[in-house]
């Protein structure tokens, strides 16, 4: 459904952030994109959604195809209308608007007649938002804001939702709840999901396929089961040692183990 071929992204005409990145998101699946800080995960999402331009970034090479059409030259509004919706990192709800006004803003590209039906759908997934529909979004808890951010995406009827760190800054119980809803949306609405996460364990549990990126490139990909067995992934992303127990930092060796995919 979505494919990135050898994408190169440059910020401010000099900083090369993505260096020939390729990935594939098949329809109806949940695909996870993992990696450490600064690997270029958010940049990848912004390259897809057309949000690079306001940050002075540019796709300089390669192509991004969505349902067979190149989209890397289109602007953000067109891309949303084509059915790709990015839920940005840090939730980014409109703090001075009420919950319902936030959802109306999410439905900006949709015909007015559909609004109440879509609203009911969002409230069905997130009953808590319904209780707080007339509250100003800035005063919601972090978890509720994340729900609102995802609800806002649903209002736009996207074929593909891109979630940037939905677990950021949330309590573990809430994270579990939100991931459960993400899986439900994928199952019940058939929405394809591209998930960026630092929490690798969580992401591997939900995804059908995962990519690991480092320094602007994909270094590894495979099914979650395969990745969970990979020694490097276990050590660097899941924090487990060779035997599979939790790593003890008392016994961490002083030299740094070399990742095998870098060479």
């Amino acid at each position: 459904m979505l494919s990135l071929n050898n994408i190169e992204v440059i910020y401010n005409d000099v900083v090369l952030v993505l260096k020939g990145l390729s990935l594939e998101v098949p329809e109806g699946r949940i695909v996870a994109l993992l990696g450490s800080n600064g690997a270029g995960k958010s940049t990848t999402l912004k390259a897809i959604s057309g949000l690079l331009k306001p940050e002075n970034g540019e796709v300089t090479d390669g192509e991004i195809l969505f349902q067979g059409q190149p989209i890397h030259k289109k602007d953000a509004a067109e891309i949303v209308r084509m059915g790709i919706f990015q839920v940005m990192e840090g939730r980014r709800v409109f703090e001075h608007l009420t919950v319902e006004e936030n959802l109306r803003a999410g439905a900006y590209t949709q015909p007015l007649g559909r609004f109440s039906e879509d609203l009911a759908l969002v409230y069905n997934y997130f009953p808590r938002l319904k209780e707080r529909r007339n509250q100003v979004a800035g005063f919601l808890s972090g978890g509720e804001q994340q729900m609102l951010a995802i609800g806002r995406a649903l209002m736009a009827h996207p074929k593909l939702i891109m979630l940037d760190e939905p677990s950021l800054g949330l309590a573990p119980l809430l994270v579990a709840e939100i991931f459960e809803i993400i899986r439900r949306i994928n199952r019940e609405q058939g929405t394809t999901i591209l998930l960026v996460e630092q929490n690798a364990r969580l992401a591997l549990e939900s995804a059908h396929h995962a990519y690991i990126m480092e320094n602007g490139r994909i270094v590894l990909d495979g099914s979650p089961a395969d990745l969970k067995d990979n020694a490097d992934v276990r050590e660097f992303y899941l924090g487990l040692n060779e035997i599979g127990s939790r790593k003890s930092y008392r016994e961490v060796k002083h030299y740094k183990r070399r990742k095998r995919w870098l060479s």
């Binding site: 306001p54 953000a76 209308r81 980014r92 409109f94 608007l97 803003a105 900006y108």
Partner: peptide
């Protein structure tokens, strides 16, 4: 509502197709 959304967070507004 789109105008108020842009006043609040321009990039987020852009991400939902608001021009």
């Amino acid at each position: 509502i789109a105008m108020r959304a842009v006043a609040d967070d321009q990039q987020a507004a852009l991400s939902m197709g608001i021009s």
